[in-house]
Design a binder for these strands. Structure first.
Length: 170
DNA sequence: GTAGTGATTGTTGCG
DNA sequence: CGCAACAATCACTAC
């Protein structure tokens, strides 16, 4: 129902001045996505509760999100009073940029794994989408390169990849 | 009681 | 090739 938004006690520092540049390393201008972002979020929930697509695969969490998951736990321990997701997000984002590639490596590895699963789900999703009126066939095909179930081998991240990379990118 | 919002970045998918 | 929209979280707030 579209509440009054910011009215929360969360304080919300007003987001300062919209995204500061965003580093032109990628596209360059993220444009006023922030404002639009709000609208997008709603759509996401709409799909979630609306359940329009029964098997719509949720996008794999990026390395940043994986890191955030852990960061949040820690952050709460140090800041049990803080009850604002934005606080963790900011803190996490700041630290994230502070981390070197080596540190992000483990997170990226996990994110990569999630992506693999996502690809698999997508296949099923596509399959269904293709056949709309048909009943669900449940993709019996299970020949996937990944999978592995128990054994959480996490895949071979065992091999240290980061060797001298700690210096990070330029 | 439900759903939306706030904030972070990354990633994926489509045109 | 570039943009757009979405991924989790958690407490809160309005209708």
């Amino acid at each position: 129902m579209k509440v009054s938004k910011g009215k929360g006690p969360v304080r919300k520092e007003k987001k300062e001045v919209l995204k500061p540049v965003v580093e032109d390393r990628k596209v360059g201008k993220r444009k006023a996505a922030i404002e639009a972002d709000k609208s997008r979020r709603k759509l996401a929930k709409n799909a979630k509760l609306g359940k329009k697509d029964p098997n719509k695969p949720k996008r794999p969490a990026s390395a940043f999100f994986v890191f955030l998951e852990e960061f949040r736990t820690i952050y709460k321990q140090e800041h049990p009073n803080v009850k604002a997701v934005s606080a963790v997000g900011k803190a996490g984002g700041e630290k994230w940029k502070s981390m070197s590639h080596a540190e992000k490596a483990p997170y990226e590895a996990k994110a990569a794994k999630r992506k693999s699963e996502y690809e698999k789900l997508m296949k099923a999703y596509n399959n269904k989408e293709e056949d709309t009126d048909d009943e669900e066939e449940e993709v019996a095909e299970r020949s996937k390169p990944i999978v592995k179930d128990d054994e959480e081998e996490e895949s071979g991240e065992e091999d240290d990849e980061e060797e001298d990379d700690d210096d990070d990118e330029d």
